[in-house]
Each structure stands twice: as C-alpha cells, then as structure tokens.
Amino acid sequence: DILLANLEDGVPADQKEAARAGLVEIAQSPTFATDFGATQFWTRVNSLDSPWGLDDLTAAVLEAGEALDVIMIPKVEGPEDIHYVDRLLAQLEAKAGLKKPLLIHAILETARGMANVEEICAASPRMQGLSLGPADLAANRRMKTTRVGGGHPGYLVRTDPPMVTRDDGTAETDINADRTTYQQDLWHYTIARMVDACVMNGILPFYGPFGDIKDTVACEDQFRNAYLLGCVGAWSLHPVQIDVAKKVFSPAPADVAHAQRVIEAMGDGTGALMLDGKMEDDASVKQCHVVVELAKALSASDPDLAASYGF
C-alpha cells in the first residue's frame, strides 16, 4: 500500500546522508510513477530534535516533494511539533512551487505524546494519521518489556484460588493449586485512545511494528486486536508480515455476508428486528455498513478479494 523511505532510527548515524540521498534518487527516478502506480510514497524523517531532522524535511520537500505524499514525524510530543512542521512545510512548498500540500503522519512514541494525542490530531489540516511506536513508548514509560510490540507473558490475570477443606472441617484457599492464567494486552488502552483521537479529527490510526518476525501467529493476534479496535492498517517489518496484515485488515467473507444480510433485512435502517436469534437495530446496521464499505473499498483494487465477497 505504501512505499516508505525510512531515514530514522533504522539507519546508522554514519549512513543518514546516504539514506536521504536514496529518498531523493527514488523520488526523481523517471520510472517512479510507472513502477509504483497508485502506491503512495512516504518518508519517515529523523526526529525534530535530532541533527538530521531539518535537513531531512528540507530535502524531502525541495528535492522529492513532487513524488511524496506523506511525511512521517517520529516522537511527536505535542501540537507544537506539528505546528512547526506545518509552517516549515508551507514555506518549503512555496519555495519548491509544489501544487499539492504534503500530509503529516505522527508517530506516538512518548508518554507526553500520548497525553497530548487529541491535541496532536487536531494540530493541522495536514494531519493524515497516527501510528503507535510501541518500543520507544515502552522505554519512555519505563515499561519492563524488551519486546517490540505485542504482549508479554508476565502481564496477566489469574483465576481465584480454589477452596480446600482441612482435616478439622474448616475451609481455606489453596494459593498453590494449579490456576488458569490469561495473558493481557499491554497496548489496549493506548490503541483505543489513539483510535478515538483519530476518529474525532477525521484522520487514520495505524498499529505499529511487531518485532518477533518468526511468530506470525502472535503477530496476527496483535494486528487483529488493532483491527477490531479501529485501526486501518499496521506496519510490516518483514515480507512474512505482509500477508498477515492483508488477511487481518480485510473483513472475513463470512462477516461481510452477515453484514449484507443485516443491511438488507433492516431496510431503511430504523427500528429493530430479530435475525438468527440476535437483535439488530439502527446501531448494529451502522456497524454492518462499516464492514461492507471497507470490503467494497478493498475490492476495488483486489479482484480475488472481490470474488471472495461475491462482489
């Protein structure tokens, strides 16, 4: 969906200028439009407090701006960061003679950024969306996990201990008995708040990276959690995660078929009815429209998906 030129933390310090030159080279390539078609071209610049951030933004606009769609700003702390980037982009766009404004995508990687997430989303009409940066955010929050996204086996709840009867007939709890545990989601609150802030301001929420490349099962679980909470996509760190993301962020054919049945049965969308033993009303039909509209949008560029939905 997106070709991203990453200039930030994935690039060693002594290769920052080479990475920036690579961004410009791709943007100015005469075959760029034909090779990538409708695929959007983004860049992830270095943070605003780094030695490279200003030069990244300047080169992105003046040398790559005609090809670029979105600039990702990492470690956004508050609306003032977006205000700065917005004004700088306006100046550089005027200097470059660009005819379309570049959009801004912020990455949430600090506790202060999360505390200001609503203000960040509303800071500029250029805002395209937000992504969760779980590793940097975990470090900034002093969370005790070394994983890049995903859950942690130590973050759990445990069932209550069973009661046992002693020899004298009294009962007590046996805390050493086998008790079922359930791993919890470290990122539930963060993603839910991020989604609300994005929806409130008409921009798009994305889940960030999942670092355990081999564990595609857990990756799918984390991506699905984000999808169900309202995220529109996720980052892929490795080719094996692309199919996982495409699967998870596309509604299941059974869900689309059910949603279509509800919409058809509800008619004008008012009132309430029973369908397959379940109550459906105006709220549930709105949920169904979300699923069907997403399926139709995805089907427009994926014939196989369209066939699976019966479109």
Rank of each mutant, 00 (worst) to 15 (best):
V195G: 14
D167Y: 05
P101N: 10
V45L: 09
M200D: 11
G65P: 01
C121Y: 00
G211N: 07
L237W: 08
E93G: 12
G65D: 01
R44G: 04
E220Q: 10
E8C: 05
G208W: 07
T216K: 05
F32R: 12
L4H: 07
L89P: 09
G310D: 04
D212K: 06
M72W: 04
L48Y: 00
E25Q: 15
D167A: 15
G133K: 13
F311D: 00
H258G: 05
K99E: 07
A33F: 04
G97L: 10
A192H: 02
T190V: 15
W187E: 07
T39V: 05
V285F: 01
T165E: 11
A96M: 09
R179C: 13
A192M: 02
L294I: 11
A38P: 02
E280H: 14
D185T: 06
I2D: 03
M274P: 01
T270D: 12
K278Y: 11
N46K: 02
L108W: 01
D215R: 05
V45N: 01
Q28P: 07
P239L: 09
M194C: 11
N46L: 01
L7H: 10
P205I: 00
I26F: 07
T270R: 12
G78D: 15
G150K: 07
G277N: 07
A252D: 15
A283N: 06
Q91Y: 11
A197Q: 07
G113F: 00
N6A: 04
L108E: 10
I104E: 00
L186M: 14
L98S: 08
G53Q: 03
G271S: 03
G202K: 02
D49G: 14
V244C: 10
L305G: 14
G269R: 00
M127P: 02
A5I: 07
D215S: 03
G211F: 05
Q15A: 14
M194A: 12
P134L: 06
G129S: 10
D215T: 03
Q183K: 11
T31I: 03
A38I: 07
P161R: 03
L68F: 04
A19L: 01
L54Y: 11
D243I: 03
Q15S: 09
L137H: 12
Q184D: 11
Y155I: 15
D1C: 07
L298E: 00
G129R: 06
T181Y: 10
I203W: 08
S50A: 08
A259E: 00
Y189Q: 11
I263M: 11
D1S: 13
D282R: 14
S299T: 02
K99L: 10
S308P: 02
L204F: 00
S308C: 04
A106V: 12
L186R: 09
A300L: 13
A13P: 02
T110A: 12
